[in-house]
Design a binder for these strands. Structure first.
Lengths: 329, 329
DNA sequence: CTGTTAGCGCGTTCAT
DNA sequence: ATGAACGCGCTAACAG
């Protein structure tokens, strides 16, 4: 004897129990069209009684809405996916998706291959797209069929709304703190040149340092700790009198810290170090890292919610970053 | 004038171009039933020409297969979702899902609420379930309708295959190293008692330490750095002569390191510290953390692949952990 | 305000 | 080996 799995209630069942037609039940469930109060009540009651929940696949098929949210991370190589930052974005998106009965999938978006965007536009399974770390080139290649259901975590465009931390403001705050505590020869470890997200911090750095009549000392990093170490060595060699370093990510800052420690440079005595992101381990380094917060989860949640709900959103939303004062600067 | 989005090719289109019926085209595409060589060729050609790709929603609706993979993290409180470990699992799953045109959603599985599992079993949208950090109670509550498409990252059961790191072996390796380098009063910072994943390491600890005729010194942590600091303080106070600490996670180990530093205890001179996980920042602490690797992505990828492909898998797969020797022990 | 009808794109018997 | 026909569960026109 096979105990058959109890077939899940369908809209048809709900309608029958409620004594209305499927359409009426559908309207009530979707909260869409009009329905009499009595009909509404009966449908709601029936649905609750039967433990009804709509089938996302059937709904997607009927509406053509798509069934998954694609997180597309732009980059030169596929390994851009292997970054804790991406992990956090995906996790937040997956949490938002759970409530909507959809899922998220993650893929690499090659910097010079907008073809993939066209494919995504034609894929009926795609409900929307969350672009991460994008460039103007990629934004310009977003097909019209994807507009209105694509948002960017990073820079935006006229057709793709942006959700991002106010990293320019964060840079100013940090640099202000460094200057305020008497530092005068401040170097900055940036991200790769092609990354638009490094532009505003770099611009802020240039403006602030120039306004103070101090020397510009820029070294590119790659957002990894290893890159931060290398950059720090470059700084040490090129400008030995540097008394502060602002790294555009905590990972790079921690790398810089390691390099300084290895060279017997005292932090913050000889050199102050500040990062950006406030990752969990920033509080645990020796010395604990001064940095600025980066509400990644909040940003990703808002971005995912916006595309799933197809709600109107302003062209650009900047999330504030807070100075986290610790020991290193 | 509205430039309509170029409607994506459907199976019907492929069939028409190939000059066969939809059924035949369907068989060829699915690689399922029989079809003449000529028919096969024509269908394949037509599909390629039209850039055809099946609609996941329609397919899910027809087969009842479901459209998303649910990552369910067991725990007492919803905040168990906010852990870098979970982030890594979800990210890996989302990457696997992308190739199958499905998505992943993330949710909390309350420790004593198997009701949610029943709901998941009835949800037609659910393709499969990936349980993380589970308990015997939860595994026993997995409905039969979910069996065969549910796997566990952690302990398993007769009906739910397990994918996990060999954390017992890892503990033995680390403890062997500590003993081998002359440590004799070794304390261990464990996870919460209810977490099955802490049992094997603790058992290993008990066995190894007892076999060496040394004292057992166990303190519970919570897998966070803060918890590790607190646990370290307890150890310092309760057993001041401790000369080595094995923490069951790098986060706790880094917390312990911070506590020792604050108390002026030299690592590894006075006390050796070892962790487990080999998180990116383990290499950057001062001193750099000795630990054991934890191939989370590999495990999650295998687990997700198993449930999506419905392939048979052994009841338990243990992934080896490697000793990562650095400075702290 | 409500019910009828017609698909959405695909898998899957059944005849042939 | 192949095609006609039906159903998966739901939404959206339309007619009442």
């Amino acid at each position: 004897m096979v105990s058959r799995a109890p077939r899940r209630a369908t809209l048809e069942d709900v309608a029958r129990v409620a004594g209305v037609s499927r359409s009426t039940a559908s309207r009530v469930i979707a909260g869409y069209g009009a329905a009499s109060a009595t009909a509404r009540d009966r449908v709601v009651a029936a649905a609750a009684q039967l433990g009804y929940a709509p089938d996302p696949a059937a709904r997607a098929l009927a509406t053509g809405a798509g069934v998954r949210l694609v997180v597309a991370v732009a980059g030169a190589v596929p390994t851009v996916l292997h970054d804790p930052y991406v992990d956090r974005v995906v996790r937040a998106a997956a949490e938002v998706c759970a409530r909507r009965e959809v899922g998220v999938s993650l893929e690499w978006l090659p910097l010079h291959a907008p073809a993939r965007l066209r494919q995504l536009a034609e894929d009926r399974g795609v409900r929307g797209v969350l672009i991460v770390n994008t460039t103007e080139l990629i934004l310009a290649a977003v097909p019209s069929a994807l507009q209105g259901r694509t948002v960017s975590i990073g820079i935006g465009s006229r057709t793709v709304p942006s959700f991002d931390v106010d990293n320019g403001g964060a840079a100013r705050t940090i640099l202000g703190h460094l200057l305020g505590s008497g530092r005068r020869r401040i170097a900055m470890i940036t991200g790769p040149d092609w990354m638009p997200c490094t532009r505003r911090p770099v611009t802020a750095y240039r403006e602030v340092i120039r306004a103070a009549g101090l020397p510009i000392r820029l070294v590119p990093g790659d957002f990894t700790a290893t890159g931060g170490q290398a950059a720090m060595l470059t700084i040490l060699e090129r400008w030995p009198d540097t008394d502060a370093v602002f790294a555009n990510s905590d990972a790079m800052a921690l790398g810089a810290l390691a390099a300084l420690r290895r060279h017997g440079v005292d932090v913050p005595g000889d050199v102050a170090v500040a990062g950006f992101d406030d990752v969990p381990f920033a509080a645990l380094s020796a010395p604990a890292l001064t940095t600025a917060s980066h509400p990644v989860e909040q940003i990703a949640t808002a971005a995912a919610t916006a595309v799933l709900d197809r709600a109107w959103v302003p062209p650009a939303t900047a999330y504030p970053s807070e100075l986290i004062l610790r020991e290193s600067a």
